[in-house]
Computed example of a mutant assay.
Amino acid sequence: MPSLLHDGERIDQLVASGVQIIQSPDVFSFSLDAVLLANFASIPKRGTIVDFCSGNGAIALFMAPRTTASIIGVELQERLADMGKRSILLNNFENQVSMEQLDIKDVHAKIKSDSVDFITCNPPYFKEQPNSKKNPNPYYAIARHEIHLQLDDVFRSASKLLKMNGKIAMVHRPERLMDILDSMRKHRIAPKRIQFIYPKESKEANTILIEGIKDGKTDGLKILPPLYVYGEDNHYLPQIKEMLHGTK
Rank of each mutant, 00 (worst) to 15 (best):
E94Q: 13
E100A: 12
T48P: 12
P44E: 07
I88G: 01
M63T: 06
V74P: 00
N56W: 04
P44S: 14
N92F: 09
F62S: 02
V74N: 00
I88P: 00
V107I: 10
G55I: 05
E75W: 01
N56C: 13
V107P: 00
D51L: 08
A69F: 11
V107R: 03
D51R: 10
T68K: 15
N95C: 06
P44L: 11
D106G: 11
K112S: 15
R86L: 01
I111G: 10
K105Y: 07
L80Q: 09
V107S: 03
L90Y: 02
V97R: 02
C53A: 12
I111Y: 04
L90V: 07
Q101F: 10
F93Y: 10
N91G: 06
F93R: 01
N95M: 06
I72M: 03
F93I: 02
L80M: 14
Q96K: 11
A69G: 12
D51M: 08
V50M: 08
R79P: 10
Q101T: 12
G47K: 08
I88M: 01
N92S: 13
A109L: 14
L90I: 03
Q96E: 03
I88H: 01
M99H: 08
V97S: 03
S87G: 10
A60Y: 00
G57H: 02
N91D: 00
E100F: 15
I59C: 01
L89E: 06
R86Y: 03
R46G: 14
S54T: 06
Q96H: 03
A69M: 11
V97N: 07
I71P: 01
V74F: 02
M63W: 06
E78L: 15
K85V: 07
G84S: 07
I111T: 09
A64D: 00
L90R: 02
R86A: 00
S87N: 06
A60Q: 04
P65A: 11
N91P: 06
M99K: 08
V107A: 04
E75T: 03
L89T: 09
